[in-house]
């Protein structure tokens, strides 16, 4: 007979394998949808490529042939999938550069922004959420709660422009130059953090309020525990797994959803790359980004599940 712990471990591995398979399936569906949706929505990229006029019908046809766009759609699709298995995302229609190279070039900037945005968002979210729950009957708690509500509802573009204006005004009033704030990534990260903090704070707030009302906390307080950090930690632990899942979601969202921040702060990154490749019909880049995003989503969810299991033994037992 297999010992119980081994059985759990096997289950655990099967579960991971299942998740990876699901992730691959999702990625395949996403990529296929993108492949056809892009072509249906944005039409013939050759007209975008030649959008500065002057070309003749013959020249347009020659370019279409050179780019392989005159092939039947099914052939183009099979070529693309075959390329994926070889790790080849294709070439940009505009520059003939390998797509993976283009994505890798823009990735660090987005990763930096998403990561710093996530960190500041989680920190700010924790601060607001715990304050809101812990000081629930005090004005500071009420303030924290309404601030997190505000951060959820105000669009990121608005906060970003406000922040830029503020720094611009400060820069004019002082002798110093504050431009480095915008370019160094500090300001964009803060802006992104503010918008990420809201949902995290709300989840912490509700989880914490619930556990503060639970029997074990009441019992602990009855035994003479003070309402201090130690108690906060005990109360916080059951509230953490949903926060981790949410952070993973937010991370995935930030990874692809930085387009507004990138545009307002004139930063390079994947968000702008994606937007432009869709608008200009540079299909290989858009497809490549969807592949990368799908992989990232799968990994971040898998990671979140693992961390949640580590944090909450109950989840380990049930799998």
């Amino acid at each position: 007979m297999v010992p119980a712990s081994h059985r759990t471990q096997t289950h655990f591995l099967i579960d991971i394998a299942k998740r990876v398979f699901e992730g691959l399936l999702t990625a395949w569906i996403a990529v296929t949808l993108t492949f056809f949706a892009l072509r249906a929505a944005t039409g013939d990229p050759v007209s975008s490529l030649l959008s500065q006029g002057l070309a003749t019908v013959e020249q347009a046809q020659a370019l279409r042939t050179a780019l392989g766009l005159d092939q039947p759609l099914t052939i183009q699709y099979l070529d693309f999938i075959a390329g994926l298995f070889k790790g080849d995302l294709g070439l940009s229609l505009y520059t003939s550069q390998p797509v993976d190279q283009i994505i890798l070039q823009q990735l660090p900037s987005t990763a930096e922004l998403a990561l710093s945005g996530l960190i500041s968002g989680v920190l700010l979210g924790f601060f607001l959420g715990t304050t809101a729950a812990w000081k629930r009957d005090h004005w500071t708690g009420k303030l924290a709660s309404s601030l997190s509500g505000l951060s959820t509802s105000v669009p990121v573009a608005f906060i970003a422009i406000l922040a830029l204006l503020l720094v611009g005004m400060l820069g004019q009033q002082t002798t110093g130059n504050l431009n480095f704030l915008g370019y160094s990534g500090l300001l964009p990260a803060l802006v992104l953090g503010i918008t990420t903090a809201g949902p995290i704070a709300k989840v912490i707030e509700s989880g914490l309020i619930e556990s503060l009302q639970s029997e074990y906390i009441h019992a602990a307080m009855a035994r003479g525990y003070q309402k201090d950090l130690r108690l906060l930690w005990h109360a916080l632990r059951p509230a953490l797994p949903p926060v981790v899942s949410l952070s993973a979601l937010e991370a995935a969202y930030l990874f692809s959803g930085t387009v507004v921040t990138e545009t307002v702060f004139s930063r390079p990154g994947l968000g702008r790359l994606l937007l432009r490749s869709i608008l200009e019909g540079d299909f290989p880049i858009a497809q490549g980004l969807v592949v990368v995003a799908a992989i990232f989503y799968t990994l971040s969810h898998l990671g979140a599940d693992l961390i949640a299991m580590l944090l909450d033994p109950r989840l380990r037992d049930t799998t």
């Binding site: 929505a41 944005t42 039409g43 013939d44 990229p45 007209s47 975008s48 959008s51 869709i278 608008l279 200009e280 019909g281």
Partner: peptide, 10 residues
């Protein structure tokens, strides 16, 4: 974008 414009035109 130009692609969607071309598509609408077509």
């Amino acid at each position: 974008g130009f692609g969607p414009l071309r598509e609408a035109q077509a």
